[in-house]
Amino acid sequence: MNPRRILPLLLLCSALFFQPAWAEIAVIVHPSNTVTLSPHTIARIFLGKQKTFSGEMKAIPLDQNINTQIYTDFSRVVLRRHPQQVKAYWAQQLFTGKGTPPRSVSSVEELKSLISQNPSFIGYIDAALVDDRVRVAYRFDPPPTL
């Protein structure tokens, strides 16, 4: 078989059978924060378009490291943007003085520790890593497999 025909065939087969590893995402808040959140509200908070939870309590988003799979999944599923689009969005917001990106944390443990100390913080982690220091405000289920 012609090598020029094999490569497209291999790419097509790998695209059909490749299933990315995607974990359930838990959006977490302080246990005393009883807010009910929608996917739309969560996206608005993490894009700096909404500064409070429902009511008067300030909402301060905490981001995972940009190089993690959970960041990529959150960007694509919740923010509905590729991670590079999110990066470009925040570069534009900074340049125009319209906002600053969420503070990035170095680990899941740091994220849970910060949220457990401040009711205004909101973050996201793999749902399997939730413990009693935080409360799940919303869960994004993995997409169905074919």
Rank of each mutant, 00 (worst) to 15 (best):
residue 1 M to A: 15
residue 5 R to G: 14
residue 5 R to I: 04
residue 7 L to C: 06
residue 7 L to D: 00
residue 9 L to T: 14
residue 9 L to F: 11
residue 10 L to Y: 01
residue 10 L to H: 03
residue 11 L to W: 05
residue 11 L to K: 15
residue 13 C to D: 00
residue 19 Q to E: 15
residue 19 Q to T: 12
residue 20 P to K: 06
residue 21 A to T: 13
residue 23 A to H: 12
residue 24 E to V: 01
residue 26 A to Q: 01
residue 27 V to P: 07
residue 27 V to Q: 03
residue 30 H to E: 04
residue 30 H to G: 00
residue 30 H to N: 11
residue 31 P to A: 06
residue 32 S to M: 09
residue 32 S to N: 13
residue 33 N to K: 05
residue 35 V to Y: 12
residue 35 V to P: 02
residue 36 T to M: 12
residue 37 L to N: 00
residue 37 L to W: 00
residue 38 S to Q: 04
residue 39 P to A: 04
residue 40 H to F: 09
residue 41 T to Y: 06
residue 43 A to V: 00
residue 44 R to M: 15
residue 45 I to D: 05
residue 45 I to E: 01
residue 45 I to C: 05
residue 47 L to P: 03
residue 48 G to M: 09
residue 48 G to I: 02
residue 48 G to N: 04
residue 54 S to Q: 10
residue 55 G to Y: 07
residue 56 E to Q: 14
residue 58 K to S: 14
residue 60 I to P: 07
residue 64 Q to A: 10
residue 65 N to F: 05
residue 65 N to R: 12
residue 66 I to S: 12
residue 67 N to W: 07
residue 69 Q to Y: 00
residue 69 Q to G: 14
residue 69 Q to S: 14
residue 70 I to M: 03
residue 72 T to E: 11
residue 73 D to K: 06
residue 73 D to N: 10
residue 74 F to D: 01
residue 75 S to T: 08
residue 77 V to R: 12
residue 79 L to D: 01
residue 79 L to A: 13
residue 82 H to R: 10
residue 82 H to Q: 09
residue 83 P to H: 02
residue 84 Q to W: 09
residue 86 V to A: 07
residue 86 V to Q: 05
residue 87 K to R: 12
residue 90 W to M: 04
residue 94 L to P: 03
residue 96 T to E: 13
residue 97 G to K: 02
residue 98 K to Y: 10
residue 99 G to D: 09
residue 99 G to W: 09
residue 100 T to C: 03
residue 102 P to D: 01
residue 104 S to R: 14
residue 105 V to M: 05
residue 106 S to I: 11
residue 107 S to H: 01
residue 109 E to P: 04
residue 112 K to S: 11
residue 116 S to T: 05
residue 116 S to C: 07
residue 116 S to K: 02
residue 117 Q to H: 10
residue 117 Q to M: 08
residue 117 Q to R: 15
residue 118 N to L: 11
residue 118 N to S: 09
residue 118 N to G: 07
residue 119 P to R: 02
residue 119 P to W: 00
residue 120 S to L: 11
residue 120 S to D: 13
residue 121 F to E: 06
residue 122 I to D: 04
residue 130 V to I: 14
residue 133 R to F: 09
residue 135 R to V: 08
residue 135 R to N: 09
residue 135 R to S: 09
residue 135 R to E: 08
residue 136 V to F: 03
residue 137 A to T: 03
residue 137 A to F: 01
residue 139 R to W: 11
residue 144 P to Y: 09
residue 144 P to E: 10
residue 145 T to F: 03
residue 145 T to R: 13
residue 146 L to V: 13
residue 146 L to T: 10
residue 146 L to R: 07
